[in-house]
């Protein structure tokens, strides 16, 4: 199982949790499993075709998955997958 860190904007979609355990051997499988467990997350981060939206950054441990093998990046027990959309807040 891989730990998936959930950003604040998606926490409601996973019942308020800050991390979720998900199964799979690649980033794609882990996120797929996450979206199976919590379909509301899928509605936010996946396109109708099932691809990740471009505005969703995914990190495996501290490295940008885009610079690894994106959704094919292998992950295992002990790895952390972090979902990171940009935040805009600052002033008001």
């Amino acid at each position: 199982m891989t730990i998936v860190k959930i950003p604040p904007v998606l926490r409601q979609a996973v019942g308020g949790e800050r991390t979720v355990q998900a199964a799979g051997t690649t980033v794609g499988e882990v996120l797929g499993n996450l979206c199976d467990q919590h379909p509301a997350v899928g509605a936010q981060i996946l396109t109708p075709e099932g691809d990740l939206h471009k505005y969703v950054n995914v990190y495996v441990n501290d490295e940008d998955a885009r610079l690894l093998q994106w959704t094919d990046t292998p992950v295992g027990t002990g790895d952390t997958v972090l979902i990171l959309p940009a935040m805009a807040g600052g002033s008001r």
């Binding site: 604040p8 471009k54 505005y55 959309p85 805009a88 807040g89 002033s91 008001r92």
Partner: peptide
């Protein structure tokens, strides 16, 4: 870092979501 901004429902402001 962020090639594109998320849509508004994924990026609430502090005025909407609190801080």
């Amino acid at each position: 870092l962020f090639p594109e901004p998320p849509p508004p429902d994924l990026a609430p402001s502090c005025g909407e979501a609190g801080v």
